[in-house]
Simulated assay, not measured.
Amino acid sequence: MTTLRTERLILRPWREDDFEPFAAMSADPKVMEHFPSTLTRAESDAVAGRLKARIEHQGFGFWALELPGIAPFIGFAGLLHVSFEAHFTPAVEIGWRLAPAHWRQGYATEAARAALAHGFGALGLAEIVSFTIPANLPSQAVMQRLGMTRNEADDFAHPRVPAGHPMSRHVLYRLRAEDWKE
């Protein structure tokens, strides 16, 4: 299974001891502000289990993020095959979620750059996408720092969010391999 390293971070496969801090993140209204709801412990454990299994099965996914010598788990970042149908699928998305104590320190961008390098390098992907709700300006800022671009015509209603829900509408950012600058 692939492990990636940056100057400050390790992007690694999930361990069982990651489930508890992930559950705390998933229950935190600040962390889940741009998602339809927080998660119960059972829901969070199910998500973490799926993320762990995907990495074990395909060698990549949303890796657990570790700050070596400082914090064994601060969130996740990485690449996943988009698991729903939309006008831009099939596709691989890049995503991240960090505990609030680790926000605004550049960790999401740093981890995402490593994931992009792996996706365009070792995995040979032609394009990577990312999406969020319009109100999630911090994540959109990360997407822009990564060199991803948005075309409003690509915005979409997320098929897993009920129609009419305030978080149904999503913005889509894209980055093609030929436009990637490490």
Rank of each mutant, 00 (worst) to 15 (best):
M1Y: 03
M1L: 12
L4P: 03
L4Q: 07
R5D: 08
T6C: 10
T6Y: 06
L9V: 10
I10T: 14
L11V: 08
L11G: 05
R12P: 08
W14R: 03
W14F: 10
R15E: 11
R15S: 06
E16Y: 08
E16L: 14
D17E: 15
D18S: 07
F19Y: 13
F19I: 04
F19V: 05
E20Y: 02
P21K: 11
P21L: 09
A23K: 01
A24Q: 10
A24Y: 00
S26I: 04
S26K: 02
S26R: 06
A27V: 08
A27N: 04
D28M: 12
K30N: 11
V31L: 08
H34K: 01
P36T: 15
P36D: 05
P36H: 08
S37C: 09
T38M: 07
T38K: 08
L39V: 01
T40Y: 00
T40F: 00
E43V: 13
E43Y: 02
S44K: 03
S44V: 10
V47A: 02
A48P: 02
R50F: 07
R50H: 06
L51S: 01
A53F: 00
R54E: 13
R54C: 07
R54S: 10
I55Y: 01
E56Q: 13
E56G: 13
H57K: 14
H57M: 12
H57W: 00
Q58G: 03
G59F: 08
G59Q: 05
F60N: 02
G61M: 09
F62D: 03
W63F: 13
A64R: 00
L65P: 02
L65I: 15
E66A: 15
E66H: 11
L67H: 07
P68T: 11
P68M: 11
P68I: 12
G69N: 09
I70F: 02
I70R: 15
A71G: 05
P72F: 09
P72S: 14
P72C: 10
P72G: 11
F73Q: 04
G75L: 07
G75E: 04
G75S: 11
F76L: 14
F76P: 01
A77E: 03
G78I: 06
L79S: 08
L79E: 05
L80D: 09
